[in-house]
Design a protein around this nucleic acid. Structure first.
Length: 742
DNA sequence: TCGCCAAGACTTTTT
DNA sequence: GTCTTGGCGA
């Protein structure tokens, strides 16, 4: 009898999916069908074992993974999944905390502070405590607080080994008080507070542990201590915990993730069944072998022997460029060769890099070549000023005591409220022991009969006007639809003329606001609280408009540009990994710490194993940083890949050392270097015979449209033409007999 | 109070 | 090279 749930699984996958009760650890190499196993397991439990969906909790790290799991399972089972707890760790914790909010010093409409909010709150705490924010930078202090929270440490439990520790502990304590005063939790709090709540209220913990008959976890290697503890608590009763992960793909150490949780799991659940998935369905054997040579140098892991039935495949290509411009050019030229020979479409390609800054040159090269691309992450939708402003207004409508949002928009658009006025407002609030928002509300409703009117003096009426707006919005919330409130805020504040000055950028920003409004539309019924929570918990990785500003056709067929971190879980036919230089990959900040170095290696491994057919490993002998050239050695990881697996394109070695110093001297003494980019590209002013938009004809290809034309330093004109018959061609004007059609 | 300009910092990764 | 921050002048 055919079985849609099990038939197409290999024996290991099937063993995992059909495992009995108890703890199950699935160690799944890249491309081994990890997601498939997880979704089938969930479907199997519900469909074959008759487990009610509402007794299951399934946690992932990204919203995208959660959505995908839900959709896939729904297509596998005959029922709906009503009542299931399926989502990210953070979303599941937020849900739990809202339900149990009476155990916490919060109201149930608490807001979730994102990274920016957290940092500005830390900054406030630092200033308030009269600590110098130059020596103790808010970003650094916040990172330390975050790390403590991930390790389940409260301020008073912080180890105080150095003066710095003591400073951090003090700021942490104040920061935490301020969060409570703002009725806000930060990201880390979602985990920490949930774990502590269960720990301190055994009755509550038992209720959840009894409820969740089955616990399923994706990307288990990325759990931190808080998450691990939570999992232990909720599976304590039934002890049915099914985790899937791969130590070799743990790349979030800096966020507290500890791949050793995999080892800990095996110790904590003594009778756990461990299943290894080693058959890879993605890559060629050459890619897998090279990846293995890289990862096998790491310790503390379960060795895996990935194999494939896809065959040997072609060798990896290693290319050493003279500089980063040439590196980007190699990527684009290679892609164009594939495209012009019709062997691939743009969406088959991915370009990966260690740091976001590296994307820029590739982008420029792609734009020049007229190739569509999409950038994952990086230019965050939610990070844009106009979006943050609007969210701040919405948050104030929800929660007028939110000081961070208030500080953000009290003078946006400018309404005569300046630094002095804000200080007065804050001191008035401080003396009355209420929040600034409440002072504003009071001023707004009572006007000059408010006790604060006299305290604040001259600019009190300006504050009162804004307070009246806040009061309006606050009372509208719940009475009118979300979109109505949204529009009211825009018109009350005059936000459109403020943000849209009719320039391209202004139009862009206004477009973003419209996009946010469309999102709000989906929450018209669910309401503001849900909308805000969702905004806080969506990551930039699963930012909804993939590239909203590109036409749909371009979106479908675009080259993907992304960081190695963002690449996890994805796959592409052709993958370029750029910047394989010491200092970049591995990153210089990992140099002195063996654990961090091991993580850089895993990061590279993740990137390599994204490739189905062809992997390009690129480096550049020198890069410009702040206008100076910097020279680097090849990444140590390249040396780990044996020669039989590699083909070298371009030159293989670097410049002789002496030559490097020679050049270095040139550039650092400020003398014009013959190698500087500015000098090498005087292309623009030179007049070209062919212009973009011209129609041309050749004997061989018929009519076409000139996309671009330029003259290089030798006076040679290169013309890019799109022909109706054969598509894109790059031609030398002197050789191709191009006829201009008037 | 606001907007402009110059100096300075900055680049690792993000739920 | 680019973005942010801070100072200064209108």
């Amino acid at each position: 009898m055919p079985d849609a749930l099990l038939d197409d699984l290999n024996p290991q996958q099937r063993r995992a999916v059909t495992a009995g009760d108890g703890a199950v650890l699935v160690l799944a190499g890249p491309g081994s069908g990890k997601t498939r196993v997880l979704t089938r397991r969930l479907a199997y439990l519900v469909e074959r074992r008759g487990v009610p969906a509402c007794d299951v909790i399934a946690v992932t790290f990204t919203n995208k993974a959660a959505r995908e799991m839900e959709n896939r399972v729904l297509s596998l089972v005959q029922q709906n999944l009503d009542g299931i707890w399926l989502g990210t760790f953070h979303a599941m914790c937020a849900r739990l905390l809202r339900r149990e909010v009476n155990y916490l010093p919060y109201r149930s409409n608490f807001v979730i502070f994102d990274a920016d909010d957290q940092e500005s709150l830390v900054k406030r705490a630092i200033r308030e405590l009269n600590i110098d924010d130059k020596t103790h930078r808010p970003a650094g202090v916040h990172a330390a607080i975050s790390a403590a929270k991930n390790d389940l440490l409260l301020p008073e439990q912080m180890p105080l080994r150095t003066y710095r520790d003591e400073v951090v502990a003090r700021v942490y304590k104040r920061y935490q008080e301020m969060l409570v005063a703002n009725n806000a939790l930060d990201f880390d709090d979602l985990l920490l507070q949930a774990a502590r709540l269960l720990e301190q209220n055994p009755g509550v913990a038992e209720r959840y542990a009894r409820r969740f008959q089955h616990v399923l976890v994706d990307e288990f290697q990325d759990t931190n201590l808080a998450q691990y503890t939570l999992l232990q608590q909720i599976c304590a009763y039934h002890k049915n915990i099914f985790v899937v992960g791969d130590e070799d793909q743990s790349i979030y150490r800096w966020r507290g993730a500890d791949y050793r949780n995999v080892l800990r799991f095996q110790q904590d659940f003594k009778d756990c069944a461990t299943i290894l998935l080693e058959q890879n369905y993605r890559s060629t054997q050459n890619v897998l072998d090279a990846a293995r040579q890289v990862i096998d140098r790491n310790g503390n892991r379960t060795p895996k022997h990935l194999f494939t039935e896809r065959g040997t495949g072609s060798k990896l290509v290693q290319f050493t460029a003279v500089d980063e411009v040439a590196e980007a050019a190699f990527v684009v030229d290679t892609i164009q060769q594939y495209l012009s020979s019709m062997r691939a479409t743009a969406s088959d390609f991915a370009v990966m890099y260690r740091t976001n800054a590296q994307s820029r040159l590739v982008e420029e090269a792609l734009i020049r070549a007229r190739l569509p691309y999409r950038l994952v992450g990086a230019l965050r939708f939610y990070g844009r000023r106009e979006i943050k402003d609007l969210i701040a207004f919405l948050r104030l409508a929800e929660n007028p005591t939110d000081e961070i949002s208030l500080a953000r928009v009290i003078a946006v658009p400018p309404r005569g409220i300046g630094q002095k006025t804000i200080e007065m407002l804050q001191s008035a609030a401080f003396q009355a022991n209420i929040s600034s928002g409440e002072v504003l509300l009071d001023l707004g409703s009572k006007g000059d009969s408010s006790p604060f009117w006299a305290i604040i003096g001259r600019s009190a009426s300006l504050l009162a006007d804004f307070g009246a707006l806040l009061a309006d919005w606050h009372s509208l919330k719940g009475r009118v639809s979300l979109v109505t409130l949204f529009d009211r805020i825009i018109s009350d504040t005059g936000y459109e003329p403020y943000i849209n000055d009719q320039s391209d950028e202004g139009n862009d920003r206004w477009e973003n606001i419209q996009e946010l409004r469309r999102l709000a539309y989906d929450y018209d019924e669910k309401g503001l609280t849900e909308f805000l929570q969702n905004l806080a918990l969506v990551s930039d990785q699963d930012t909804l408009p993939p590239e909203a500003d590109q036409p749909a056709t371009a979106r479908q067929k675009a080259v993907t540009l992304l960081t190695l971190h963002a690449a996890k879980g994805l796959e592409f036919n052709q993958v370029f990994i750029t910047g394989l230089d010491e200092g970049l990959l591995p990153h210089s900040r990992s140099r002195d710490d063996p654990e961090e170095m091991a993580e850089e290696r895993r990061l590279f491994y993740v990137g390599m194993t994204r490739a189905r057919d062809q992997l390009y490993l690129l480096r550049s002998e020198r890069r410009s940083s702040f206008g100076n050239w910097e020279y680097s050695e090849p990444s140590r990881f390249l040396a780990d890949i044996s020669d039989e697996l590699l083909t070298y394109q371009g030159k293989r070695g670097g410049l002789p050392r002496a030559a490097q110093f020679e050049e270095l001297r040139w550039t650092t003494t400020g003398l014009p270097s013959t190698y500087s980019r500015r000098q090498r590209k005087p292309e623009l002013p030179v007049e070209t015979r062919f212009k973009p938009g011209m129609r041309v004809r050749t004997a061989a290809w018929g009519e076409g449209l000139v996309l671009e034309s330029r003259v290089d330093s030798d006076g040679e004109e290169t013309v890019d033409v799109h022909f109706e018959s054969v598509g894109f061609k790059r031609l030398l004007a002197s050789l191709a007999k191009l006829e201009i059609i008037p």
